[in-house]
Computed example of a mutant assay.
Amino acid sequence: MTPAQYAPLIAILIALPIILLRNRAPRTLRPGRMWVMPALIVPLMGLALWGTSMEPGADHTPFDLVAWAMLASGLILGGAAGWWRGKMTTIERHPDGTLKAQASPLGIILIVVLLLGRGTLRAILEPHAADWHLNTLAIADAFLLFVVGMIVVQRIEMFIRARRLLSGGTDSHVEAAPVA
């Protein structure tokens, strides 16, 4: 492995304990501000997709059906991962009307597995892309679309649940406590 390949692994090893410790306590959830992250991520990822197409030496061949299928798969799989991650987040309504959210450790582990999987897939797919008639730009872009799908759908899922709780409903994925 090269130093460029070690850097993400070292960053994950440093960040993972910090993130897990930080997520031990519930944090205040503000449904009115949940649109901010997707509103920032979508244009930034759009710029990243545009930027990768402008790289010198990049594969500028037009996307074929396989490339578009990879992009769609990345977005759909990211949406599924985001939905799952949003469902795994515990949201509670407190007596003062505030919402508290606590991310599941499984959601954090999912992100780490996805980052490691991305590196592994990239290492496998990119050297063999020409042999397998795959567009390397589409492979990289599919990973970016995965992130977009995951963030947007997670926020939508959490917003729906938070709105339900604020209107007096219950969180559908949490079992109700038995009445004594």
Rank of each mutant, 00 (worst) to 15 (best):
M45Q: 09
W35N: 07
L71A: 09
V113P: 04
S172F: 12
V113D: 07
V174E: 14
S53A: 13
M45R: 04
V147R: 08
A162E: 05
I124L: 15
L40K: 07
A140L: 05
Q102D: 03
P127V: 06
G119E: 10
D59Y: 07
A180F: 12
P178M: 09
D141I: 00
W83S: 05
H94K: 12
I108A: 11
A130R: 13
T52E: 13
P105W: 09
G107Y: 06
R27T: 01
M45K: 05
A180Y: 13
E157M: 04
K100I: 01
L121M: 12
A69N: 07
P38L: 06
I14T: 05
I151F: 15
F146N: 05
M54Y: 09
A80P: 08
G149I: 01
P127N: 02
G46R: 08
T89R: 09
V66T: 15
L21Q: 11
L106C: 00
S167W: 00
I12E: 04
N135D: 03
A67F: 09
L16P: 02
F143I: 00
E175M: 10
V112H: 11
L9F: 11
L114A: 15
L121A: 14
T2L: 03
G79W: 09
A142M: 11
P95C: 07
Q154A: 09
P105R: 04
L65P: 01
L13T: 09
K87L: 14
E126W: 11
E55N: 08
V153A: 08
P105K: 06
G169N: 05
R22K: 08
A58C: 03
P178H: 12
T170V: 12
Q102R: 15
P43M: 14
P62W: 06
G46N: 08
V112G: 07
A180R: 14
A129R: 04
P95H: 07
L77Y: 15
M1F: 03
R24Y: 06
A7S: 07
Y6F: 10
S73E: 12
H94N: 05
M88C: 04
F146K: 02
P26R: 03
A123Y: 13
L145T: 05
R118Q: 13
I124Y: 13
M70I: 11
